[in-house]
Structure formats: C-alpha cells, structure tokens
Design a protein around this nucleic acid. Sequence first.
DNA 1: CACCATTTTGATAACGGTTCTCATTTGTCC
DNA 2: GGACAAATGAGAACCGTTATCAAAATGGTG
Lengths: 124, 124
Amino acid sequence: MAHKTRPVILRAFRGIDGFASARELHAQAVGNGDALGLATVYRELRRMVSEEIVDVVHDLDGEARYRHCDEAHHHHLVCERCGLTREIAGEEIETWIIGVAQSAGFHQIRHTIELVGLCSTCAS
Amino acid sequence: MAHKTRPVILRAFRGIDGFASARELHAQAVGNGDALGLATVYRELRRMVSEEIVDVVHDLDGEARYRHCDEAHHHHLVCERCGLTREIAGEEIETWIIGVAQSAGFHQIRHTIELVGLCSTCAS
DNA sequence: CACCATTTTGATAACGGTTCTCATTTGTCC
DNA sequence: GGACAAATGAGAACCGTTATCAAAATGGTG
C-alpha cells in the first residue's frame, strides 16, 4: 500500500519549527507542493499520535498542536509587545519534569510551558 | 452589585473533586438548586481564570477543565484519564524561569506550565 | 416608592477546530 | 485488464466555547 500521506506530513514537519497546528501543517504541505485535504491531515496526525510518532499538546484555546517526536524539544520566550521570540535550551526543565513525574508515579507526561514577558527594548 | 454567580460557582466547585468541565460545574450548580445558564458559567469561569482564582488545563480532546485554586502560584500534574490531580512544589522551576528571563534580558515574565499524563493506576 | 442608568443574566445564534460520511480515486492481486 | 480493498477529500455534522442582545436585576437619586 502506497501511503503517500505520511511522507507529506513528515516533510511538512521539517519545514516548521516546533509545534504546529493541523491547519499550519496543511498549509506547509500545500506550500511544499504536496496537495492533500485537511481531513487527511487530521486522520494521519491521529494515526501518528496513536503510534507515538507525534506528540500533541493543546494551547490555551484548546487547539491541538503537534510535534514530530524526533525533533529536539525546546521552548520559547515571547515578548508580548513586539513579538520577539527567543529559543530556550530547556535541558534543566526537562529533567525536572521527568523527576516530578516519576516521584508521583505518572507516565507519558506531556508538558506545555509558555513564558511571556517584555524584551529588553520594550521594557525601556 | 449583585454578583450572585460567583458564590454559585464556588459552591459547585465544593461539590466536585478535582478538575471539572464547564458542563459538569453547571450540572453540579443546578443540582445544588442554583439555577443559572451555561453561558454564565463560561463567563464567570473566564473571569476567575483571569483573576487566577481558577486553574484551567485541557484534556486530550481539548476540552477545558477547571479547578478552584485558592493558594498562591503553583502547578499541577493531571491524569488525562481519571482526572487525578497532584500539586507540584515548583520552587525549582520558578528560579529556573527567573534565570532564563534575566539572561535573555526579559522582564515581567508570566508563565504557564501544564503537565498532563497518566497516573500509576491508569497506566496499568 | 418611582424613575432611570448601569450591570448582569441567559436563550440562542454564531464560531472554529475536529471528526464523520460517503462517493470517488487509487492501489493490489489475480 | 478486471475485481476487490484501501485511501482520499469535499463537505456535512458535531461539540465545546464565545458573541449577541433583549429581558431582568440592581443601585442610586429625588
């Protein structure tokens, strides 16, 4: 069976940094020249999540955001005034989370971390 | 200044263990004999979230689940299956965040941290 | 109490993300 | 090629949430 959808999704993930919504992935795929329907994107993402190839978290509005598991996991610091974004190396926090989860007996922990504030220029 | 809604919501929270959806809170309030509309429940919950009186997380389907939180700032570990909730002492993470913000020159950082997974019983 | 201005409420419509439906297309096997 | 099975996608349906707006409750004032 040809399964042409999955490679298209994986290529779309490669063109996006970090987490992406289903709609963003669809737009990226179309931009890549891979024509496919939104329903197919949702269906394939659901499969990939159940196969644990893709992580899913929900933003504050409840919208699902997906991330290919093989990518490096990092967080962002966002300026709420000018939109400046800065990547954070989150080694520390990942280990902290794993420790917290283990001591509570929790498994398969997903986390969302959102840091918003004012960058140095906007603060002055 | 009537504000009769908030006490009704708080009473509904008292009758529920852990996190509850808006619909569950509405049903609980009605069960308590407090008649009110679903729209009012959503509106008051939004207010309480913005006042940081209530915590909100999202389950696997993206549905919002609320919890009354009268303590200061803290985080939760939530089981996405049974709703079991565990409070996390987050001293470590607060200092980590402050450090990250300082080194990036950011000020007035607000943060959202959401940890969702499977508790030990649901994992087996 | 009567009156008006302001706020709150709630039934319902609208909205948006996700899932479902099903006719059509595509792939596989003989 | 022909027949059967799987995959696809356009649009409908679904469901939680938010917006709308008229009615009701409240507060202040004379």
